[in-house]
């Protein structure tokens, strides 16, 4: 059995619903080598739905937020004036912390002249783990009503394996949560579909990965087999389409039943297994090309 170096490969897309999670899970199982899969789509973690074993371990995840020691607080208001996120309010005899607005920068504690602020943990979600065959899934799940997606993603992201391949299922978009999930990856697979929405959102994702200097390739899902707007965009931009997954009703139906639809198809499955060698070649290539050097 072949094994892979502990690479970190992000599976991302600008648009939601292009098949990111489906690809991540199918790829993880198709490889048949030990893989760690991180579900960083913490607002809507779905990878676990493919695991019949059910989520086993569940650990609360917290961030550090300020707490005011009223024995020491002089109500000077320095903390509130410093906080760019408006997370503190200090009156003549009152001081309040709005944990949900805190960005955990630590500034209030630094500027307090009376050492009246300490940091305490505040639960924002949970980390859940399940293993099945060769795949170990670690997912983050944001508690409903919480808004700290990026901090939770950064915590889950630290679970990347040091001795085996890690696949990262990223949240859609190009804002903070997506950046938090792809950051630190060796390579990114961008999943898209041959529609104008798919193309529009792909362009945004490409722009983002170029800013982050992460090498990437395209997986074209629901491909009609013919030349599409995604093909012509990739030609113009010199981007590789690594693989095309055909648009078939059977695949859509199998996906809707929660089955590993790509693994069921021999041809797609063997193409998934060829992805890793291709990616490794591309990373080596981009390490010597000036454009691809990571900071």
């Amino acid at each position: 059995m072949m094994n892979y170096p502990p690479l970190q490969i992000a599976i991302a897309s600008g648009k939601g619903g292009t098949g990111k999670t489906t690809l991540a899970v199918n790829l993880a199982f198709a490889l048949e080598v030990p893989v760690r899969l991180l579900d960083c789509d913490v607002e809507e973690p779905n990878a676990h739905l493919y695991f019949y074993a059910g989520l086993k371990e569940s650990v609360p995840v917290s961030v550090q937020v300020p707490e005011i020691d009223f024995a020491l607080c002089q109500f000077c208001g320095d903390c509130s004036r410093f906080c760019r996120f408006n997370a503190l309010a200090v009156g003549k005899k009152t001081a309040l912390v709005f944990k949900e607005l805190c960005h955990n920068c630590g500034g209030c504690k630094l500027v307090c002249p009376h050492q009246a602020i300490r940091e305490v943990p505040w639960v924002i979600g949970k980390k859940e783990i399940v293993s099945q065959d060769s795949v170990e899934l670690i997912q983050g799940c944001l508690d409903i009503g919480r808004v700290q997606a990026s901090p939770l993603i950064r915590i889950i992201r630290k679970e990347a394996s040091k001795d085996k391949l890690t696949l990262i299922d990223c949240p859609p978009g190009t804002t903070c949560p997506m950046i938090a999930a792809v950051e630190g990856s060796d390579y990114a697979l961008l999943v898209t579909e041959p529609t104008p929405f798919g193309l529009n959102d792909l362009k945004l994702a490409v722009e983002t990965l170029r800013v982050l200097k992460i090498p990437f390739g395209i997986i074209l899902n629901r491909s009609q087999g013919k030349d599409s707007i995604i093909h012509s965009y990739c030609r113009e931009e010199g981007i590789n389409i690594l693989m095309e997954i055909p648009d078939r009703r059977q695949i859509a139906e199998a996906c809707s039943r929660g089955e590993l639809a790509f693994c069921q198809d021999e041809e797609i499955r063997s193409q998934l297994r060829e992805l890793l060698p291709t990616i490794m070649m591309q990373i080596n290539f981009s390490m010597v090309s000036p454009e691809g050097v990571r900071p």
Partner: peptide, 18 residues
């Protein structure tokens, strides 16, 4: 122009006025 917490800061400003 506050990104967030405008209400909190407006309230704090009012606290100072007693």
């Amino acid at each position: 122009d506050a990104v967030q917490g405008a209400g909190i800061q407006t309230a704090e400003k009012i606290l100072r006025e007693e």
